[in-house]
């Protein structure tokens, strides 16, 4: 991971802009660094030019892959959250995850659950294929339309 300089002023400016515009997320990229400010999702700053090794564990939604693409619109095979809620990668605490990176899944197979107010919403794989990335940690809050996983 390349080193980056944390720009306090830039983050504050983006956060203010977020507040003023009512947007849920703003991403700013310049000189090989990317800063993303999102409501509820915190702030990340990252290098975009450096290729990275394959992740050893599921990545947070804001980390970059080898291509540097992270958002749902540009992520091939993205599985997105149908609602605001809390994502679970396993059926219960301590249980094996529904799927892991590298697994082959069939269409309709439950790959995650998103809970909102004790309403459990199993997320089915929209198509069969290989799980390329898991973009949430167990118990992460998620927004509507947020990329949760990528299935090739």
């Amino acid at each position: 991971m390349a080193k980056f300089k944390f720009d306090d002023d830039l983050v504050r400016s983006l956060a203010k802009l977020l507040e003023e515009t009512g947007l849920t997320e703003i991403e700013f990229e310049a000189e090989g660094q990317r800063v993303r400010v999102a409501r509820g999702g915190g702030v990340t700053t990252e290098a975009t030019a450096q290729p990275q090794a394959a992740p050893a564990k599921p990545e947070a939604a804001t980390e970059t892959g080898e291509t540097g693409e992270i958002d749902a619109e540009h992520l091939p095979g993205a599985v997105t959250s149908p609602m605001v809620g809390t994502a679970y990668t396993a059926p219960e605490p301590g249980a094996p995850p529904f799927v892991s990176v590298g697994d082959t899944v069939r269409e309709g197979q439950t790959v995650l659950i998103v809970e909102a107010m004790k309403t459990m919403n199993p997320i089915p794989a929209p198509h069969g294929g290989k799980v390329m990335r898991i973009l949430v940690e167990n118990g992460d809050p998620v927004e509507f339309g947020e990329a949760l996983m990528a299935i090739e």
């Binding site: 149908p82 609602m83 809620g85 107010m117 309403t119």
Partner: peptide, 10 residues
């Protein structure tokens, strides 16, 4: 809409 479903919890 699915996003309205949690209201039925209440």
């Amino acid at each position: 809409l699915l996003t309205q479903a949690p209201q039925l919890s209440f």
